[in-house]
Computed example of a mutant assay.
Amino acid sequence: MRSFDYTPLYRTTVGFDRLFDMLDNSVRSDWPPYNIEKTGDDDYRITMAVAGFSTDEVELTQHGPELIVVGQKQTEESDRQILHRGMATRNFKQVFKLADYVKVAKATLENGLLSVDLVREIPEEMKPRRIGLRSSSDANPTQQPQISEDTERRRKVA
């Protein structure tokens, strides 16, 4: 595992503490294996190989900016004797940090693959909007500028 020293960046940046904490704490286990893919401009998919787990044994929770995936294998009570255990069926917990406004759209478990579809839904007031500009030469010099009622009330009060 590689470790990076962010000390020089701490000296030259202000307000990025959360980002550096996320980088420091981004150590992930290698099991279960997973893919993260971008399926659209604001759509993402996490696919995890969880063979041997049923829908009752896998739990997904979104808590703020974190998606937590937990697999708890139920103990088998059988009389069979296993001579070699090559298939990993151990419990796991995987935490994914999500960006702002990213939400889980759906999750499916099929053929041993857990697919979690994510979508970024930016609120309308947070989206960029174009503001039209006019130059002073566009205005008609004989036409008086229109004053809103709110501006007129402020003048009377002052």
Rank of each mutant, 00 (worst) to 15 (best):
T12I: 11
Q81M: 12
S26L: 13
R85C: 07
F92K: 03
E121N: 14
L23P: 01
R2F: 08
Q94T: 10
F96G: 02
L23C: 09
K73D: 00
K103H: 10
V157S: 08
L9V: 09
Q144K: 13
Y34C: 10
G86N: 15
A107N: 06
Q81E: 12
V14S: 13
D5I: 05
L133D: 12
N91K: 01
Q143P: 00
D100M: 04
G86R: 14
D30P: 00
K103N: 14
P145Q: 15
P141E: 02
I36N: 04
E121S: 15
V69M: 10
P65W: 05
A51F: 09
H63L: 15
G112P: 09
Y34S: 08
M48S: 11
D56A: 12
E149W: 01
Q72K: 09
M48G: 08
T142V: 06
V70W: 02
L109V: 13
P8V: 08
E152T: 03
A49G: 09
T108N: 11
E76K: 07
L118Q: 00
N35P: 02
E76R: 09
V14Y: 14
R130P: 01
P123V: 08
K97R: 13
F92E: 07
G132K: 14
P145V: 12
P123N: 08
E37A: 06
R18Q: 12
E59F: 08
M126Y: 15
T47W: 00
R155P: 00
D150R: 11
L9D: 05
L19K: 13
A107E: 06
Y6H: 07
G64W: 10
V50R: 04
A88V: 12
A105R: 10
D100F: 04
G40H: 06
F53I: 02
Y44N: 02
S54P: 00
E76W: 10
I131M: 14
V119M: 08
E37H: 01
G52D: 14
K93N: 11
E125M: 07
I122W: 01
Y101R: 07
Q146T: 10
R129Y: 15
F16G: 03
T12G: 12
D17E: 15
D43M: 10
N111M: 05
D43F: 03
Y101N: 09
Q62S: 11
D21I: 13
I36Y: 07
L114N: 04
P128R: 11
M48E: 06
Q74K: 09
T7Y: 04
I68F: 02
Y34K: 01
E57N: 11
N91Q: 03
H63W: 13
A158M: 08
N140P: 05
R120C: 08
I147V: 10
G86F: 11
A51M: 14
V70A: 13
K106D: 03
P65C: 07
K38L: 13
